[in-house]
Write a protein that binds this DNA or RNA. Structure first.
Lengths: 122, 122
DNA sequence: GCCCTTAGTATACTACAGGTTAGTGGTTAC
DNA sequence: GTAACCACTAACCTGTAGTATACTAAGGGC
């Protein structure tokens, strides 16, 4: 548990008091299997549709399309279609994704840590 | 977007490079509608079954039961049944939940911020 | 003209998470 | 003794997330 500075008490009332509603709100927008992965993948520089589909192993075109639309609607993702060439579309992240930075970082760190632990590589 | 210190660049490759798998791992364990909410609720001091069900408005006994079992299996939650009285069960959090502190905190903060923004209380 | 690629959409199907309702076995309260 | 509460479990249902496959419309290569 030395992986970084943690408070020595449980995450009890003080920090959590109103967290139920907040967590609910957050999960409503960025919950689900793909939302954060799509954001992360675009952040990694995959900004074409098929590129994203390849990066996100397992996602279908239908679902990716839906996720992108949803993320665009919620102001996380931009879609720029080259007017000259309709088969040239670029996805990007908006500034609002900045606000998710901490969530993305902590979740990634935890996932890495947990993954190692589960696979016994500790 | 002044809500705290953010890097001025997008969360691109450096931090995200291996995050896809990590995020996937994380969501596998703590993804879903209730997992984090249950943890948060126990953290807030709700450690009886019915108490939890009341705190987590909308969850059914069936689902709560399943979530608790799953969380216990994954080492986040402890279950202590009073041997004298089978109707007296206490749920608690394990030390491993400490490692989730950062995730919980950032998600809560973001949810609060986003909730305010959505509801126009900015 | 023919084939490949891109960026999707259409259709049809499946699976599973989660919800609803009801019920069980024990305990305490009156 | 019966009513209410606790901690669940069983059976069933639904809806959404996800899959598979095929298809379109445009551009580029040869």
């Amino acid at each position: 548990m030395e992986h970084n500075e943690q408070p020595t008490t449980y995450p009890t009332p003080y920090e959590c008091q109103n967290s139920l509603g907040a967590i609910r709100d957050a999960l409503f927008v960025i919950g689900g299997k793909w939302k954060l992965q799509v954001i992360s993948a675009i952040g990694q520089g995959h900004n074409r549709f098929n590129e994203l589909q390849r990066a996100l192993t397992g996602i279908s075109a239908r679902v990716l399309s839906a996720e992108l639309k949803d993320l665009e609607l919620n102001g996380f993702v931009t879609r720029k279609a080259d007017p000259n060439s309709p088969v040239n579309v670029e996805y990007g992240l908006t500034d609002y994704v900045h606000t998710l930075y901490d969530v993305l970082r902590s979740l990634t760190e935890w996932g890495e840590m947990h993954g190692k632990k589960i696979r016994g590589k500790d």
